[in-house]
Design a protein around this nucleic acid. Structure first.
Lengths: 162, 162
DNA sequence: GTCAGTGCAAACTTTTTGCAACTAC
DNA sequence: GTAGTTGCAAAAAGTTTGCACTGAC
């Protein structure tokens, strides 16, 4: 894991070099904070991590700058999670299957090798795939049950009226 | 197409009835505006459509309210498009494969029946699938070529130095 | 030494909220 | 009639920008 973090740091350095951008302590600190995350996060959360765990104070604008760079470098990805904008660490565009409940907004990540293989074997002209993200919309068991109960109740009410 | 619009209107009415919510002209007008869209849109765009094409003035809050309802009813879906929050019409959770260029942000929707079948045959315990959305990240041909050119140039520069 | 990058605060954009008036049921 | 909705305006949340200063190269 430390190796992976190290490699991600080098990827950032390389990206900055290639783009003729400066390798500042702030930018390295933003990446270090990202490496400490586990799951999706907001710029605000990231700033808190930098301040509390790394004792590194930065202004909000610098966090946005850093996240933008990391996005360009392919080290983080901007995502929509139950309607909210979040970022998440992404390792070599590691791909995910995400089940989202459209009722309560709960999110579960799962794996499925046949689906993964099928997606990755997809070849598109004029497009070089780097990674992917599959979001499945539906109902979790709790909400599914709750909705069924609600409908039964309403149907009964209708019946009673007649 | 008109049939489909009609069915979507009925789906909204049904959703409102089931949830004991009121079927107001504003809510119907929001759906009508959505039905006129073709591709992703913002709440602001939608409001403009309502005002210009339907001559129906609503305040912003009502647009948000309407979109939230349509989302619950499964008639629109909130998406992140090159980092920006957008909504899009969705018909019976019609599912999409979307190629996103991580460099220029361009987006292309494609179809692939094997991938679609594989995803839809996926069975998850404790989750009822209604629809899905596959986002493929990568480089479009233009950006791919541009990046190659840039790297060649830099490599050449390095070589010249030595 | 130079200029890209940063901090800070202010501006701007997008979304939500409180409240009085309205209206679908 | 009444409680859910709306309009309006103000507030909150999220993001970007201008400017002077700093520090990476």
């Amino acid at each position: 894991m430390s190796d992976r973090n190290q490699e991600m740091r080098e990827m950032l350095a390389e990206h900055l070099r290639l783009q003729n951008l400066r390798n500042t302590p702030e930018r390295r600190a933003v990446l270090d904070a990202v490496l400490q995350t586990d799951g999706p996060f907001t710029p605000e959360t990231l700033q808190e991590i930098m301040e509390s765990r790394q004792n590194f104070r930065v202004c909000r604008a610098t966090v946005y700058n850093g996240l933008g760079l990391l996005e360009d470098a392919g080290l983080v990805r901007k995502i929509c999670l139950s309607g909210l904008v979040r970022y998440e660490k992404c390792w070599k565009n590691r791909s995910t299957i995400r089940l989202t409940c459209t009722s309560c907004g709960s999110v579960t990540d799962v794996t499925d090798d046949s689906v993964r293989r099928q997606i990755e074997s997809m070849r598109k002209r004029r497009f070089t795939m780097a990674g992917w993200s599959l979001t499945v919309y539906g109902l979790c068991s709790k909400c599914s049950a709750a909705i069924k109960r609600k409908q039964n109740r309403l149907n009964k009410k209708d019946k009673d009226k007649k």
